[in-house]
Design a protein around this nucleic acid. Structure first.
Lengths: 118, 118
DNA sequence: TACATACTGAACCATATAGTTCAGTGTCTA
DNA sequence: TAGACACTGAACTATATGGTTCAGTATGTA
């Protein structure tokens, strides 16, 4: 039995799993932006954009600050360090597995045998 | 207007957003495994585990092969390259933003001003 | 003061996730 | 051949996501 409970990674990866949100990060990398300007750029209602920003904020990837009537969004200081580390560590696992040559053999065997992928 | 449509990244990040699934990848890094053995290790029904494996499979992170009555799961050849690249590229964006010193200033200003994070 | 702007919140919708149970089907093995 | 084993699929539950509309509230501006 193994127990995995890594909430911060959950939130960050979930935030990154949406193309619009990845686009928002992209955009904020080119400069801070208001909710309205983001909503325009991604052709979405204000409310819809606000939700995306909230998801990014919960994940710590974006921070926002309201001045007057404008809420400005910027990239969070948290960054993507933890995610990069997880990915890099596991990328090694993947590669290690493929250096085992039985992999290549079973790969060849798999061509034209069964496969009943639901 | 910006259009982002990156399905493979969507699927992979979504697959990685669940701690159990990250655990499965972890586990498969230590050796191939059947659905049953994974279900045991993560204290979950067979059906539940099958669903997780399907999510990983759709994302290309895991491949499975049924031999006799046993379906064996292993890490997919696809790996985490695309995800690593996205993360690394954007990590730079985050860091670049923080080298701008107005960042530090506004960071200081933010302490004890508004904040109405819904 | 009146109007426009920028956001906020509630409510709703369709679909997906994460999990379950239960009832199979197909494959070993004694 | 009879059981047991490993998976599969359908159905159901509760909750989350990604989006909308509509009705506010607060702020800036003419």
């Amino acid at each position: 039995m193994v127990q995995y409970v890594t909430l911060p990674l959950d939130l960050a990866f979930a935030a990154l799993s949406d193309a619009t949100r990845r686009g928002i990060i992209d955009q904020l990398g080119r400069g801070d932006a208001s909710i309205t300007s983001l909503a325009d750029k991604f052709q979405m209602t204000l409310t819809g954009m606000k939700k995306h920003v909230q998801v990014l904020e919960r994940a710590g990837l974006v921070v926002t600050q309201k001045v007057g009537r404008v809420r400005t969004c910027k990239l969070g200081k948290r960054g993507l360090k933890a995610e990069a580390e997880w990915i890099e560590a596991h990328r090694k696992l993947f590669e290690a597995r493929f250096e085992a040559l039985d992999e290549i053999i079973s790969e060849m065997k798999r061509e034209g045998s069964d496969e009943s992928a639901s």
